[in-house]
Amino acid sequence: MAKVLSHLDWLESEAIHIMREVAGQCSNPVLLFSGGKDSLCLLRIAEKAFRPGRFPFPLMHVDTGHNYPEVIAFRDRKVNELGERLVVASVEESMKKGTVMLNSPNEPRNKYQSITLLEAIEEHGFDCCIGGARRDEEKARAKERIMSFRDEFGQWDPKNQRPELWDLYNARVHKGENIRAFPISNWTEMDVWQYIEREQLELPNIYYAHQRDVVKRNGAIVPVTEFTPPKPGELIENLMVRFRTVGDITCTAPVLSHADTVEKIILETASTIISERGETRLDDQMSESAMEQRKKEGYF
C-alpha cells in the first residue's frame, strides 16, 4: 500500500500549491490579512510555501476602524515577526474621500470593506488577492472557484465562472480585472482549528474564553464597546465568552464558552451544533442570500 498524506498534510500541501501558482502566474498579488484565524493559517502556509525566501506579495488589511485593539496590536506584532510588508486600506479614509457614505453613524461597516478593497486594488494595481475564505462557511461560497474571477467592478458572476478542473488554475486577467485566490477553500472550521493546534499558531487572545461585558439582543450576545453601546433597558452582564470569527466589532458576536485553550476549542467545535457564520456573524443573518449579494458587489 502506497504512502498517503494525512488529511491536514493534504490540505496544507494543496494550499501551498495554490499559493505558488499565484506567485508563478500573477505579477502583483497581495494576501488579505485581518488578524483572524483563517488568515493566520494563510500566513503559516505562505511561510511553508516561500521560506527561506521572502513572500512574493505584501499583506493587506482592510480596516473598518471598528476593531478590537488586541487584534490590531496582534496584527502589527505578527507582521514585524515575519518581516513582511503590510498595506492598510482604511474604510475611514474612503469615508473621508466620500466614496463610502454611511446611512447612519453606527452602521456596520463590513459591507463597505468592498469599496475600500476595490480602491486599494486599483491604487496598488493588484491582479490577485489571496483570501482565507472557505467553502464550508456559506452556501454561496460552496460554488466558488479556488481562483475566482472578478471583473473591473470587482463583481463575482456565479453563473459565468471559469471552469476549474484538476489542479490546473487559470489566473490570467486583463488590466483592471482581478483574481481572488482561496487556498483554504477545502478546509472546514474543524480543519482550521486542528491546523492551529498542530502548528501551534498564536491567535489574538479574544479567540479564547475571557470575561467580557455583553448584552443579549435578539438571541445573540453583543459585546459592549464604544461602537456597540447597550440600548436603553438592556442589562449588561459580565460573562465568559470567546469569539469564533474576528471582524468589524459591530457585526461580530462572541459565544458563551469556557474554552481557553486550542484543545478545548476543538472539543467544543466537535460537539457544537451551530455553524460559525450562523452563530456569530450578524451580517449574514439578514437574508438567505446576504453573502451572495455581497460577493457580487466585490466582497471577498
Binding site: K143, K159, N186
Partner: peptide, 22 residues
C-alpha cells in the same frame, strides 16, 4: 444542497458545488 439565489428561483442547480463531512 440548495445553493444560489438564481438556483432557488428557478428550482435548478447550475454549477458544481463542493460539500464536506468528516
Amino acid at each position: 444542497t440548495d445553493g444560489l439565489q438564481a438556483e432557488r428561483e428557478q428550482g435548478i442547480t447550475i454549477d458544481v458545488a463542493y460539500r464536506y463531512f468528516s
